[in-house]
Amino acid sequence: YMEGDRKTLVRQIHDAYMKNFTMNKAKARLILTGKTSEPPFIIHDMDTFQLAERTLAAHMVKGDRSESESEVQSEPETPAPVCQELQQREAEARLFHCCQSTSVETVTELTEFAKAMPHFQMLDLNDQVTLLKYAVHEALFTLLASCMNKDGLLVARGRGFITREFLKSLRRPFSDMMEPKFQFATRFNSMDLDDSDLALFVAAIICCGDRPGLVDVPVVERLQESVIQALRHHLLANHPDDTFLFPRLLQKLADLRELVTEHAQLIQEIKTLEDTSLHPLLQEIYKDMY
């Protein structure tokens, strides 16, 4: 790759990222730092969660801000004490389904992003499937970090903010789901990457030559090498004062694999312990993963 080609690759990957992901770090940071006109609705307990379910979901379906805002003013129904525990269990299960819906939406965006990456669609179709199968959760947790701060996580396309304490207060195994992601996000966000860096990092996660079962490893490795070199040069240009950023970022790839392995085990545990279903797309991805 010559310098001109490399710059074209960086631009194409950044464009693909900005076009295909509805939320990005720049947007998320504006919301998280209170620089938008409308602050997100804060979900900090079961009542505010149930209120958000009605208002934010209604907003997404109707696309009518004024109508959903008027619903925010309404009082939540008070559950009878005898039903409270059952209602809480149901709410936790619904929260798990909300997480699944967001994951499925992001997997769809990631697939479109991969397809828009130069040379990806020229790969063997089986290899495209393999690369996405193993990459989507690593990429998902990377993108999730952009929506997190130490206190919580943006949800519903930035219209809601769910607190870390509330997620920790859920019963096991749901309470164990997000805390490791917050811990990862704190370390990851300290590197101060912007969307152009993240676009290349997500591309590097996807184009990985050591995923199990790849048919044509050398072709994937060549693509990986071009993305990794583009990432290295871009980081040096974009963060001239941080010369160790590239090796630190590569280290995060190992951290992400560990995070995904733990997450897959937890999903397995939830499937075993709880009477809950898993979206067919996520079932495909988890099946025979590690």
């Binding site: 697939t111 991969a114 495209q128 393999t130 025979d288």
Partner: peptide, 21 residues
Amino acid sequence: LQEKHKILHKLLQNGNTPDEV
């Protein structure tokens, strides 16, 4: 592999949303 990952395969082929598959 494509047989075991029908939805992922379909998303790669034509970009249908998972609910449409």
